[in-house]
Simulated scan of single mutants.
Amino acid sequence: MKKEKYKMGKLGKYKFMKKYKMIRKFLPDTRTATLSNLKIMLKLYRSVYLKPDEGTGGHGIYKINRGENSFVLRTGSNSRMFSSLNDLYASIQSILIRDKYVVQEGIELLKHNNRPFDIRVMVQKNGKGTLDVTGIIGRQAKRNKVVTNFHSGGTPLSINTLLKSHLNGESRKQYIQSLERLGKDASTVLGKSYRSKRAFGVDIAIDNKMNPWVLEINTKPDMSIFNTLRNKTMYNRILRYSKIKG
């Protein structure tokens, strides 16, 4: 089997994609999770996420919120408060170093029924080797959880359902099309490095001002989430594309 030209974690993908103007403004600030970077990031942003550089499925993710005179560390549905960032960092330093964590700018996710959600756009190569968007779905976080992932208890929902309380008919339709375009653009850029990959799962966050952000791109995306929808049109299309040989 042909080896990938590059094998990159979250930071490598971020640095590679940042070189391309078409996608740069949609990438949240991402750096190696050192204490000095954490200090800088928490001066710039009210919250940050700590993620394993090569982790998947939402496992091992922490969120840090900056308060007036304290820092709150959240993981799963647990919270711990620290009076200093040094103390917080010391409590998880060994994990951050062992699993090569990155720190990412916290995007305050849009909510549906008071629970945050993000979007997964599935992009796959067709018979001609060009990219098509084959599916788009929302993932709503379990109550009090910091991640939306399906395998961490997140609820898969249709994008129409999640955006109904934020946008009406035609503007919602156009907005969904813009998310699909962003997913395709992001996959086109990363595909310049992962040339042999035939599918990309693009995770997109939407903030309170309706700005989209590309959080991550999976090069081995899970298709089963689309099978949870009652309407199987997308899932069947994704399956059909997955059988196309390169």
Score class of each variant (00 low, 15 high):
Lys3Ala: 14
Glu4Ala: 12
Lys10Ile: 09
Arg24Pro: 03
Arg31Lys: 12
Thr32Ile: 12
Thr32Cys: 08
Ala33Gly: 07
Thr34Asp: 03
Thr34His: 11
Leu38Val: 07
Met41Leu: 09
Arg46Tyr: 10
Ser47Ile: 06
Ser47Gly: 09
Val48Asn: 01
Pro52Ala: 09
Gly57Ser: 13
Gly60Asp: 09
Ile64Met: 05
Asn65Glu: 14
Asn69Phe: 00
Ser70Lys: 10
Arg74Trp: 06
Leu88Val: 10
Tyr89Val: 04
Tyr89Leu: 06
Ile95Met: 14
Ile95Asn: 13
Ile95Gly: 07
Leu96Glu: 04
Arg98Thr: 13
Asp99Gln: 15
Gly106Ser: 02
Leu109Tyr: 11
Asn114Gly: 12
Phe117Arg: 05
Phe117Lys: 03
Ile119Lys: 05
Val121Arg: 00
Gly129Thr: 06
Val133Met: 01
Gly135Pro: 03
Ile137Asp: 00
Ile137Ala: 01
Arg139Trp: 00
Arg139Tyr: 02
Asn144Leu: 10
Ser152Leu: 03
Gly154Phe: 02
Gly154Cys: 10
Leu157Glu: 10
Ile159Ala: 04
Thr161Tyr: 09
Leu162Asp: 03
Leu163Ile: 06
Leu163Glu: 04
Lys164Leu: 12
Leu167His: 04
Asn168Lys: 15
Ser171Thr: 14
Arg172Phe: 07
Tyr175Asp: 05
Gln177Lys: 14
Gln177Ser: 12
Glu180Tyr: 05
Arg181Asp: 12
Arg181Thr: 12
Lys184Pro: 04
Ala186Pro: 01
Tyr194Glu: 07
Ser196Cys: 10
Val202Pro: 00
Asp203Lys: 01
Asp203Val: 02
Ala205Met: 14
Lys209Glu: 14
Trp213Ala: 06
Val214Ala: 05
Glu216Trp: 04
Ile217Leu: 05
Ile217Phe: 01
Met223Arg: 10
Ser224Gln: 13
Asn227Asp: 15
Arg230Tyr: 06
Tyr235Ile: 00
Ile238Glu: 07
Leu239Met: 12
Leu239Asp: 06
Ile244Pro: 04
